[in-house]
Structures are given as C-alpha cells and as structure tokens.
Design a protein around this nucleic acid. Structure first.
Lengths: 252, 252
DNA sequence: CTAAACCATAACGTTACGTTAATGTCAAGG
DNA sequence: CCTTGACATTAACGTAACGTTATGGTTTAG
C-alpha cells in the first residue's frame, strides 16, 4: 500500500509553490531531472525528486545561485556546512554594503534638506549661523567685501540639485589630484587636475591668480578647510598649494 | 584660455573609472549621449557630459537602476529628494530581507552543528540532556521502552544532511496540511496530507495505527510538541488529530 | 610605411526564469 | 465520433547591465 506517487509538472509545481516553467528550467539545466512517461513524453516526478526539489528551494531561498545549489547537492553531507558558512559571509558582506549605501543615501538626503555641513567651499554657506558670520568677516578682511558677498550670492543661487552636482564634481577632482600626487606638483597630471579645479571654482568665484593662490593658502591654513582636505588625503592641501603656484606661474 | 575639453571614450572611461563599453552602452540606451567628431564618427564627451556621468555613477553606486537614473536626471531638482527617500525605503527592505536570510542560515548552521532544538519529532533527540532524559522516561512509560529506544537509534543513525532533509520534508507536509484545513479533516486534501505524514514518520518509527493515533494525541497534549505546531498554525494540532482518526478508520 | 593602439559597430553570453507560440495529448460531454 | 478545454511538449525571445569577442576603419609613434 505504498503511495507510489508520480507527479506531473503542474501538480508538483502547485505543491511546491513554483511555476511549471521553473521545473522545466531545472530539467533543462540538469538540476532536477524527472523520469518520463514513455507513452507521451510527459515528465514524471517521484518521491526522491520531490525531496530534491525541497532541498533546492530551501537553498534558493537562502540566496544560493542554482549553480551553487548544484554543487552543494552533488556533494554529500559536510560540504553543506562549509557552503553555508561561506554563504553567510557573503550575505554579511552584502548587508554591510547595503548599510553603507543606506548611510550615504541618508547623508545625501540630509544635505538636500540642508541640515548638514558641506565640504570645502560649501563650508562657506554650510556653517551654522554664528560660525558663518564670524568666518564671513574674516573672509571680507582677507579678500574684500564685495568679492565675498558675490561668492555667497553665486552659491546661493544654485538649486539643491545643482549644489549636489557641483560637490560631486569637486570630489572627483580632488580624488584625481590625489592620484596625481606621485608624479609631483609640476607633472601634467597634477596641472591637468588644477586646470579642472580652476574651472570648478568658477561656481564660486570669478577666479584670478590672486584668488587661486589665496585658496591654496587657505586650504592649508584654515583648519576647517584643512580638515576637509585631510579627510581625503593628509598631503593633499600641501600638494595643491604647490601645484597651484606652478599653475599660476605658467598662466602669467 | 578656457580648457575646451573633449574626451574620447577611453579617456573619459579612465577618468571616471568605468569601462569604455559602459559608455558605449549608456550612449546606446540614450542615457548619456556624447557629441560626435564628424570626420571619423568618434564620440566626444564635453564638460556637461562629464558632469552628467558623475551624477549617473553617483546614483548607480546608490543602487539605482539605470532606468531610474534616467527618470531622476530628466526631471530637475526636488524629485531627487523624493526619489532618494523612496530608494532608501527599498534599500532598507532589502536589508531586512538579508537579515532574515542570515538568521535562517545561522539557525541552519547551528542545527547542523547540533546545538539547537529541533522541530516536532526532532525534539526527541534535540532537547538538552536533562530534558531529554526526563522526556525519554515519559515516552517509555507511554509507548514502551524498546519502541522508544528504537526510535532514538533510528534518528541518530541519520547524517546531519539527512536530518535536515527530513526536517524540511516535514515542514512542507505541515504546511500542506494547513492548506487542507478549509476542506475539513476528512477531505481528500487532508487525507492525502496525512498519508504523506504517515510515510514521513517512518524516519522515526515503524508506524502502526496505535502509534499514529498516539502521535495525534501527543501533538495536542504535550506542550512541547504543541508549541511547535502552534507556530505553524494554531489549529493544526487539533486538525491533525481528527484527520488521523479518519485516516486510521479507513485503514483498518 | 608599418605596427601598435585607438576608434566604430555587431552580436553573443551572462541569471533565472516569464511569456508567448505552435503543436500534441487526455478526459469529459453532446 | 467529435469537439472542447485543460493539460502536456519544445522552441524562442525578453529581461539588466554590461563583458567579451570579432571585424574593420583611423590615428599616431617610430
């Protein structure tokens, strides 16, 4: 009286909660080969096939690829454990990556909402009210009032979206400059980077050699700017100052 | 003296850290259309293209699909914020899913290592030493010593891999029985499920009507078994008891 | 002048199926 | 007996985001 069960595709599909196509596919890739009814060629799944499918679906839910599942199922017993531990590591890595992404997205949202301080130039308008006022006075003394005010206006006129775009451009320029550091401040790589930076700061100032050189100093001497650059690379500010000096000499 | 930059594919690719093929592809799907050198048909990327690429890569890193990126970039300003918040939600959902997977993997690993209690029958050998001894005595009183010992032996002889397979089979049977509940304990659906269960418990006992009926009671009366079944469905144990009674009457 | 190094387009391969589409088979009802 | 509907079969294209050839034209360094 043993229930000599032989499921057809759809029957097994319904039981297991997958589509018939899935079973066709598993057959096609030799992951789960059913028997065949010689009369009509229909697939016939017996008890062992059902068990194997259960195993497959279990591992699939855990995020294994079908290829990995095949490997695991074709080797017995203990390899399952090591495969699972391996798999756990990759899942954890994926989770860490996701957490990084989420953090970045959240920072970006914060920035777009305006409640976070910004990098480098963006500090100009990103400081808290008090700090901003104090710094503005200092900047006026150093660079002249109308120039500073103009810079503020220019930055404020951008949309949030544009601000984000500009910041990102800045970041890539600084990263390129870091890559140029091994070649020295006079290298074409560095000078190319400074040229891009020169273009970039148009978003803030009408640049002149005076302004460029002043910024080179500012990045080194002002602790707020300096902190920002240090986060990218500890020698970046110094490197940029030198490169800017070379650049301005060539320009004149 | 504006640096009138026009990058070729590979140049931009190197700068941006992507492959030339990627740029070709973005061109192909109209995500980033460069200009063309009319003389030879070469792609030429200008400053605005570079900026747009930066945006694209930024969003891509955040896990946006290229399709989504296109939508975001083709609408200005504020939609970025809502898109980001939307995106954050989906990232968080993915993280939750990952965490569920990791938990399951870890439980499975624990099980394979043998330090966790098991479901239903698996409780027989999965309890802590003390509980196990106590329960074994009880079982001996109820079902006779040699029968219980035989069950233990049978279970212990399986490999970890086989145990896992058996547990999974059991789980699917119980779930199928839950689906059969609306049709009543005498329904073909339920009886089919009980027949599978009957086969299943061969892994533990040489089944007789006496044993089957006894298990039907045990699932309801023993709090440890009952808890396990309640986790699947609050009425499952009661349903199974009735279905088993019907099944045994038909068998006799 | 040639070879290396670049450019272009075309087209297939990847994962795990979903989705037609064309065709064959089976059980039930008129 | 024939039809109808619900099943079965295989074949084939589509998905996302490129990687990887393959084939052929262009530019540049020596």
């Amino acid at each position: 009286m043993t229930t000599d069960l032989r499921y057809t595709v759809r029957q097994l599909a319904v039981i297991a909660g997958v589509s018939a196509r899935t079973l066709h596919y598993y057959d096609e890739i030799n992951l789960l080969k059913p028997g065949r009814n010689p009369a009509n060629g229909y697939r016939l799944y017996d008890r062992t096939a059902v068990l194997r499918l259960q195993q497959i679906l279990f591992l699939r839910e855990l995020g294994f690829s079908l290829e990995e599942i095949r490997e695991v199922l074709n080797q017995p017993d203990f390899d399952l454990l090591t495969a699972l531990e391996q798999h756990r590591l990759s899942l954890q890595a994926r989770r860490r990556k996701l957490e990084g992404l989420i953090a970045t997205v959240e920072r970006t949202i914060s920035f777009l909402k305006g409640d976070i301080e910004m990098d480098a130039h963006e500090l100009f308008s990103g400081f808290s009210e008090e700090k901003q006022k104090a710094y503005k006075e200092e900047a006026r003394r150093r660079y002249g009032a109308q120039r500073v005010d103009e810079s503020y206006q220019r930055w404020d006129n951008y949309s949030n979206d544009q601000k984000l775009k500009i910041m990102q451009e800045g970041k890539t320029i600084y990263l390129d400059l870091v890559e140029a550091m091994p070649y020295g401040p006079s290298s074409p790589q560095a000078q190319e980077g400074i040229a891009r930076w020169h273009q970039h700061i148009r978003y803030f100032y009408e640049p002149s050699a005076e302004i460029l050189l002043g910024l080179g100093d500012l990045y080194n001497d002002d602790p707020r700017f300096n902190a920002t650059f240090n986060r990218i690379h500890p020698d970046l500010a110094a490197f940029m100052r030198q490169a800017i000096q070379v650049y301005c000499q060539k320009m004149s």
